[in-house]
């Protein structure tokens, strides 16, 4: 039981890191960045590259994955979103262009690495198992959970207590007011993409560490989950996305534990059913802004 809860928190942490970046871009620009799974996958590959080619330790590789995917996020914005923004295109076109971008990058990676699993160099990841009571917990996941929590704490500090963070929130709430207050919009948007993609990339690297399996399509299953988690948490609310992520993680593991083995296929149905229930009870999401406030 403790082991299952531990797993749920681990999965929830990965969902949270992924979803928080997705929600950040949505809150600032009102667009769904369908290329978010790409940065997730690239994060894992960057870490792999650092470790297998340069022999860097996993922790250091994760930092480089954050920086590299963050920079890639700025590039992604320049290619897929900025041109549409300049022309005042509707949010739907941004969705399509990011989807196109994602497909191109994933295919290129498949060409280079093949569609199959790649794994990290042998012995590059800690294999320690900690015994707490009768639960055997894998130390690597413990580190990953801790890291995810630290990263989300840092993000909270950044958006609440730094001027750049406030600029991003101002831009999210009221672009015209933000510009009149002297917010450098290009810089705020570039920072948004850097952070969003950096978090996505780190999530990918960490998931890669935990499952030791990386492949070009590895981000794809997370996209729909991140979208759901964001809607349930409250469109564009960062704490809401985190909360939704942990609920989904716990819901999935609960389904695994409580459903009989021959119904294990229903695991997603159960988890999503739970989220649906939340929405029925609270249509604006758990921590969403009241509609009147957004108007």
């Amino acid at each position: 039981m403790a082991e299952q809860l531990y797993n749920a928190i681990f999965v929830g942490s990965i969902y949270a890191l992924f979803a928080v970046g997705f929600a950040l871009v949505f809150s600032v620009l009102d667009i769904l960045n369908l290329a978010h799974p790409v940065v997730f996958m690239l994060g894992a590959f960057v870490a792999l590259f650092c470790m297998s080619t340069f022999g860097l330790p996993a922790g250091f590789a994760a930092v480089i994955a954050f920086l590299a995917t963050g920079a890639f996020g700025i590039f992604l914005d320049r290619i897929a979103f900025a041109p549409l923004r300049r022309r005042g295109a509707p949010p739907l076109s941004a969705m399509i262009s990011s989807l196109g971008f994602a497909i191109v990058v994933i295919r290129l990676m498949e060409l280079r690495y093949g569609p199959d699993l790649t794994s990290y160099p042998a012995g590059s990841l800690p294999q320690t198992v900690v015994q707490i009571g009768d639960a055997r917990l894998d130390a690597l996941r413990l580190v990953i959970i801790g890291l995810a929590i630290v990263l989300m704490g840092a993000l909270t500090y950044f958006v609440r207590a730094t001027q750049l963070g406030r600029d991003i929130r101002a831009l999210a709430e009221n672009p015209r007011a933000a510009r009149l207050l002297g917010v450098n919009v290009d810089r705020a948007i570039a920072s948004t993409f850097f952070i969003s993609s950096g978090f996505g990339g780190v999530a990918g690297a960490l998931l890669g560490f935990a499952y030791n399996a990386i492949y070009p399509q590895m981000g794809t299953p997370y996209e729909l989950k991140a979208f759901t988690v964001m809607v349930v948490g409250g469109m564009g609310s960062l704490p809401g996305a985190v909360l939704g992520a942990y609920i989904l993680g716990i819901g999935e593991i609960a389904a695994l534990v409580f459903l009989p083995a021959d119904l294990a296929e229903l695991r997603d149905a159960l988890a999503f059913g739970l989220l649906f229930l939340v929405l029925v009870i609270r249509p604006r999401g758990l921590l969403g802004h009241r509609v009147a406030e957004r108007a």
């Binding site: 101002a170 709430e173 015209r176 007011a177 510009r179 009149l180 002297g182 919009v185 406030e293």
Partner: peptide
């Protein structure tokens, strides 16, 4: 010039309808 450069130069506007940031 971009708006942020104009603000930095010293021209600051109190816009019509106030445009306060309601969620801050």
């Amino acid at each position: 010039a971009p708006p942020y450069a104009i603000v930095r130069a010293g021209i600051v506007q109190v816009p019509e309808g106030r445009e306060i940031l309601a969620r801050m």
